[in-house]
Design a protein around this nucleic acid. Sequence first.
DNA 1: GCCGTACCGTACCGTACAGTACGGCACTTC
DNA 2: GAAGTGCCGTACTGTACGGTACGGTACGGC
Lengths: 218, 218
Amino acid sequence: MAVAAAAQASQGERIEGGEFSPRQREVLDAVLALMLAEGDSFSMAAVASKASCSKETLYNWFGDRDGLLAATVRWQASKVRLPSPERTDLDRSSLEARLADFAESWLTVLTGEVSIALNSLAVAHAKSAKSPLGKTVLDNGRFAIGRRMKPVLEMAREAGLIGFDDTEEAFRTFFGLVVRDVQIRALLGDWPLPGPQQIRREAEAAARQFLTLYGVGE
Amino acid sequence: MAVAAAAQASQGERIEGGEFSPRQREVLDAVLALMLAEGDSFSMAAVASKASCSKETLYNWFGDRDGLLAATVRWQASKVRLPSPERTDLDRSSLEARLADFAESWLTVLTGEVSIALNSLAVAHAKSAKSPLGKTVLDNGRFAIGRRMKPVLEMAREAGLIGFDDTEEAFRTFFGLVVRDVQIRALLGDWPLPGPQQIRREAEAAARQFLTLYGVGE
DNA sequence: GCCGTACCGTACCGTACAGTACGGCACTTC
DNA sequence: GAAGTGCCGTACTGTACGGTACGGTACGGC
């Protein structure tokens, strides 16, 4: 029963704040592997088999299939740690480099198998709400990168390098310049995806264009 | 049997080049309605019931469920007709207006229920290839708008208003400036979507920014 | 040594749904 | 008006899968 998921989780090993026991992590990694291979169409039996655990344990730990999926998304999210931007002095060229690095790492994540699989799954489940996979993915993708970027943008503004009124708007523009049509094409299966060199080139172009739009002085 | 879909379709009313009989269109509209309401999780029985036809007819016409989905996507695609840009003289402000109009209509389509439902469906089915829904959606979305835009961009370049080497790259940048995070947020269920005024504002901003990046002279 | 607990493996249940079969009706063709 | 055809409605089949139940084992506490 879905509503009992949270309660169920309280027996056995506990699920809290995205923390899972080592054994549970093994299970979730198995789910991840199945998701990469088969998308959304794997069965609970397949998970149990792959993880060498019983279905009953799956249901005890995660409540139901949606709970398992949600836990998997949270587990993967907890694995990805974007580098926190330390506070340093910025000039125009170091800012551009910083932006390009952000763009590069973001494009790299975005075009990764795991990211594509997770986003596809979340999109597919967005309709039948029930579990907010979409929200979780968004929080750990689009919004996470936003939280990292904004301090950099505001630092650069304080340093008089760029100008904008609304940090959110400025970030959304940067986002657009970086991602362009890459994500939607990846999600719709339009191979091949850009490789590392291509990504580096696009990232640098995006940083340059962003500074053209928002740079001041010079 | 999936491989027999094309052959099956040759009996009864014919499916060719995206052309469907009136009765078939009724059926496909019913599918569309169900898709808006339930995403991917409607049954063939539900389609038959909603369209007042028999399941046997569905299978005779469309082969299997995937065939029905593919036909629905093609049918919807054939309904959307982007305005063809007539060849006119352009100056800087009429170009900006034209770009803004493109951006506006594109954002409007993108945030529409039908577009979101179709894209979600195609994303969900992209993994289990079998039927190239993703390709069809891409061809009638991202690439269709590209085909419409490029002549405008090249016209403007000939008129000496903007400069670029690679039309495709220029268009992809425009795409990014227009779409930004709107589509991915829409697909992941991050309501509310921007309304008409908001879209108009974002479209104008995108056109302005594009001209800042690519405009020459002035 | 005994008990409780956590877990594995497997068998089981109910249901939903893709796909098929078939009887009957309306309509066309000769 | 007989034969053929296209389609509707419905009943049927097979199966896959979510979720549950239960017996058996390993282990830690007392």
